[in-house]
């Protein structure tokens, strides 16, 4: 595939930055420091450019310029103008944090954001953290298979698939045990202590599985970088054909 000069330079730059970042695996060194510092700056620049276009330009400048033009003919446009100028004033008030003597002014916009965010999150928390967990628990533990359908690989007791039922029990009892473990108003001793111990086992299995999953997700990112170096840089930019 033909590459433009910009693409060619880009791939070399990307490969160099990839090596700079990976060099940290040996030890902290100036190449990694350069890549890290550049990444911080570029990320901040990206964030600033994103906000400038997606918020300041799209949500403030364009609607404001349109509303100002029609405000003499359509008085309702005045509300649109106010709804753009007021949040900008509140936003500017946040910048008062730079001046300690008037820093208290920044509390108003922060209170606005925290207040509406909290009110919004109350319902969000109930809808996503609490209710779905309860819904997930309230269902039959014992699964009964359709007797007309034969499943030779599944171990059955009568019409009950054994593994599915055991798994449901593990989930149900596991959740109760984990909740019991986090209930500190009662000493974890005796039968209750043994029950909470089962909760700890569930937590350990869950944390282990999550950890393994996270490691493999990061690995896939690393594989992506190695593929970039092999395919785009060595084969594409350098023109060296690799076997396989």
């Amino acid at each position: 595939m033909e590459m433009t000069t910009a693409e060619l330079i880009g791939i070399w730059v990307a490969a160099a930055l990839t090596f700079c970042a990976l060099s940290f695996l040996y030890k902290d060194n100036p190449f990694y420091q350069v890549a890290e510092s550049l990444f911080v700056g570029v990320s901040a620049g990206y964030g600033a450019a994103f906000v400038l276009h997606q918020v300041i330009y799209q949500d403030v400048i364009i609607p404001l310029s349109v509303s100002v033009q029609v405000v003499s003919e359509e008085p309702s446009a005045l509300l649109q103008v106010a709804n753009r100028i007021l949040p900008c004033i509140l936003g500017l008030m946040i910048l008062a944090r730079f001046f300690p003597s008037i820093g208290w002014i920044s509390r108003w916009p922060l209170a606005f954001i925290i207040g509406y965010g909290t009110g919004f999150n109350v319902m969000f928390i109930i809808q996503t953290f609490l209710l779905p967990q309860i819904y997930g628990m309230v269902k039959p533990l014992v699964e009964v298979a359709d007797p007309t359908v034969t499943t030779p690989d599944v171990v059955m007791i009568g019409n009950v698939p054994l593994m599915a039922t055991i798994s449901n029990l593990v989930l149900f009892v596991g959740v109760l045990a984990v909740i019991a473990y986090f209930f500190f108003s009662k000493p974890h001793t005796g039968a209750y202590g043994k029950f909470t111990k089962f909760g700890v086992w569930m937590l350990m299995l869950g944390f282990g599985a999550t950890y393994g999953n996270t490691v493999m997700a990061r690995m896939s990112l690393l594989i992506g970088r190695i593929q970039f170096l092999l395919d785009d840089w060595i084969q594409g930019a350098m023109g060296i054909n690799l076997p396989g």
Binding site: Q133, M137, L171, A177, I179, M202, G206
Partner: peptide
């Protein structure tokens, strides 16, 4: 199963 049990308890 075990992962969901742990997460569900934590989410509560």
């Amino acid at each position: 199963y075990p992962n969901t049990a742990a997460k569900r308890g934590v989410y509560f």
